[in-house]
Write a protein that binds this DNA or RNA. Structure first.
Lengths: 173, 173
DNA sequence: TATGAATGCTTAGGTGCCTAACTATTTGGA
DNA sequence: TCCAAATAGTTAGGCACCTAAGCATTCATA
């Protein structure tokens, strides 16, 4: 490793934050900005790693979440409900269901109660897929946070929740 | 708020984690799995919020990062260098530069040293854009983490770095 | 010196996510 | 009762990201 090796793009330095703030004569706290920047970088990293992880099982993060949510609800749910519980738009659910249906992991049935509505059901093949990936999935999830003790994980959960609550500062107004 | 209001999709519960693990007779630690799941959810949330945030200034997260990186290096850098420091593929840089060039925020010039290479330069318009968005950008970044004290932020940075180091557990092998 | 390997960038095609607009159906109020 | 508003789902178009494959140019070496 040379003294000038490439810095981790997900981990901007405090110096960098200080420099950026100074350039425009602002008064923001460099440490606070650094935390925000690191979190954004970590978020991107985690997202990409998640796609690789679920890709092993022929799924994506979105498709896995839809499948798991379906299983958690007796294997049957409307697209609108799925959109609400996954926190994505209905259009995204349409796309996810299209892909999962193509692979036979879910199926669409017209709703018996509402002529406008559909119901997405988990097929046997879909349930199988979830069962097959579970051991490796949970093992890897667990090893990801193995660098922290139980106490540290508790602290982390608390701090993370409080920052997540602050995310709306980015979007509000 | 009703007693059965929709749970935050980014915040799965410990109960949910326990249930999923139990369903397949596994022995994973529910708390560890919860931390991993919450982090993945937070990552997605932050990513979306970032797009909204930068969208205010006619940019995206990727385009902002490219612009800021360019400014940090004297306003001139090759696509390959940009890809390395942003942590994305060269193909992605091509797309980002295409968009930024269309809006006149950067320009492409052939490299004088390497006939194969380009140099991306920050235009005056691009530097203006960065200067205009800086006050609001840093203010919002700061408010995002305002729920934490300085000491808590330090702890958070440490814990986050150690979990980020564990991300490769999701991808390795 | 000539040629194959490495490098720089773009293109093509895929996925996920979004918003906005469109169709079909249901619901509710004048 | 009837018609407008709300709701369910899809489609269309956009952006960011990826990998793989394609050119062009430069480098290294036989």
């Amino acid at each position: 490793m040379t003294p000038h090796h490439q810095a981790d793009p997900a981990a901007p330095s405090l110096e960098q934050a200080r420099r950026q703030i100074a350039r425009y004569g602002l008064t923001a706290d460099p440490q606070a900005v650094l935390v925000a920047a690191r979190l954004m970088g970590a978020g991107a990293r985690i997202g990409q790693a998640g796609e690789v992880h679920f890709g092993r099982f022929g799924l994506s993060t979105g498709r896995y979440r839809l499948l798991a949510d379906l299983e958690d609800h007796g294997g049957e749910k409307s697209p609108s409900q799925l959109a609400a519980s996954l926190g994505v738009s209905r259009a995204t659910v349409t796309g996810l269901v299209d892909g999962l249906e193509r692979e036979g992991l879910v199926a669409r049935r017209p709703s018996t109660e509402d002529g406008r509505g559909n119901v997405v059901i988990l097929t046997a093949r879909g349930a199988d897929r979830l069962r097959e990936l579970a051991p490796e999935h949970f093992a890897r999830m667990q090893s990801m946070v193995e660098g922290l003790s139980v106490e540290e994980r508790t602290v982390f959960l608390d701090l993370l929740a409080r920052i997540v609550a602050g995310i709306e500062a980015l979007t509000e107004d």
